[in-house]
Amino acid sequence: MLLTKHALQALVTHGLAVNKNNVVQVDVSSIGLRLDNQFTVYDPYEGEPFIPPKAMPSTMKTISQNDFFVLPPGGSVLACTEEYITMPNDKFGLIQTKGSIARGFISVHMSDGQVDPGYKGKVTLELVNMSSFYYKLVPGMPIASLFIINTDQSVEPYDGRYQSSSGPTAMK
Rank of each mutant, 00 (worst) to 15 (best):
residue 166 S to L: 11
residue 60 M to I: 13
residue 123 V to W: 01
residue 19 N to Y: 06
residue 68 F to V: 07
residue 76 S to N: 11
residue 107 S to I: 14
residue 145 S to N: 15
residue 170 A to L: 08
residue 132 S to N: 13
residue 136 K to W: 08
residue 56 M to R: 15
residue 115 V to L: 04
residue 157 P to F: 12
residue 171 M to Y: 10
residue 1 M to F: 08
residue 133 F to C: 10
residue 147 F to T: 13
residue 64 S to P: 05
residue 82 E to L: 12
residue 137 L to T: 04
residue 35 L to Y: 02
residue 69 F to S: 03
residue 129 N to K: 05
residue 74 G to T: 10
residue 81 T to L: 03
residue 139 P to Y: 08
residue 41 V to A: 07
residue 167 G to Q: 09
residue 68 F to H: 15
residue 171 M to S: 11
residue 1 M to C: 09
residue 142 P to Q: 08
residue 4 T to W: 09
residue 160 G to E: 06
residue 4 T to L: 11
residue 152 D to F: 07
residue 158 Y to P: 05
residue 8 L to H: 04
residue 134 Y to P: 03
residue 162 Y to N: 05
residue 53 P to F: 09
residue 88 P to R: 04
residue 115 V to H: 01
residue 144 A to P: 02
residue 57 P to F: 07
residue 48 E to Y: 06
residue 130 M to G: 12
residue 163 Q to W: 10
residue 20 K to A: 11
residue 31 I to S: 01
residue 115 V to E: 00
residue 22 N to V: 03
residue 125 L to W: 04
residue 86 T to E: 07
residue 84 Y to T: 13
residue 50 F to V: 09
residue 170 A to V: 15
residue 112 D to T: 10
residue 81 T to E: 02
residue 91 K to C: 10
residue 162 Y to G: 01
residue 67 D to Y: 03
residue 33 L to H: 03
residue 6 H to I: 10
residue 122 K to N: 05
residue 124 T to R: 00
residue 52 P to W: 06
residue 131 S to N: 05
residue 148 I to H: 00
residue 150 N to G: 02
residue 119 Y to A: 03
residue 155 V to D: 01
residue 172 K to P: 13
residue 25 Q to A: 12
residue 63 I to M: 04
residue 13 T to Y: 08
residue 64 S to Y: 11
residue 77 V to S: 01
residue 92 F to A: 07
residue 131 S to W: 09
residue 139 P to E: 06
residue 105 F to P: 04
residue 117 P to I: 06
residue 64 S to V: 05
residue 15 G to D: 04
residue 149 I to D: 07
residue 4 T to I: 14
residue 95 I to A: 02
residue 134 Y to F: 15
residue 66 N to Q: 14
residue 32 G to C: 02
residue 43 D to N: 13
residue 163 Q to H: 06
residue 152 D to V: 07
residue 79 A to W: 01
residue 159 D to C: 11
residue 157 P to G: 15
residue 95 I to E: 00
residue 37 N to K: 09
residue 49 P to T: 10
residue 133 F to W: 06
residue 14 H to K: 15
residue 129 N to E: 08
residue 100 S to E: 14
